[in-house]
């Protein structure tokens, strides 16, 4: 993981294959409530993504497909500094 240059912009994660600003694309094939049609199912491929990350004192970029050949535990959570 190469260290990323730090700017003032607030970078975000993106799904590989979707442009960073994919609002129109998402809207075009969105299901009810604007959710994209692509949804994870067990037994199916995990959608690849890349995202800026903080890792041991450095800002890096992480791509899920870089972990091919390994088991991955991916955890989403509501927010930093929350209580649970």
């Amino acid at each position: 993981m190469a260290e990323e240059p730090v700017g003032c912009a607030k970078p975000t994660g993106t799904v590989v294959g979707q442009p960073p600003d994919s609002r129109n694309e998402l809207r075009a094939d969105a299901g009810e409530g604007g959710r994209p049609m692509v949804m994870v199912k067990v037994g199916g491929k995990a959608p690849d993504f890349q995202a800026p990350a903080y890792h041991r004192g450095k800002f890096v970029n992480v791509k899920l497909s870089d972990y091919a050949g390994k088991w991955v535990l991916l955890c989403f959570y509501p927010g930093d500094f929350t209580f649970v």
Partner: peptide, 23 residues
């Protein structure tokens, strides 16, 4: 400390395809 990468998904793009984003 936290030994793994902590990812930022500010726009919820990852959460949307994994079905966990609360818009």
């Amino acid at each position: 400390g936290i030994p793994w990468p902590m990812l930022s998904d500010g726009a919820g793009n990852l959460g949307k395809v994994y079905g966990v984003y609360d818009e």
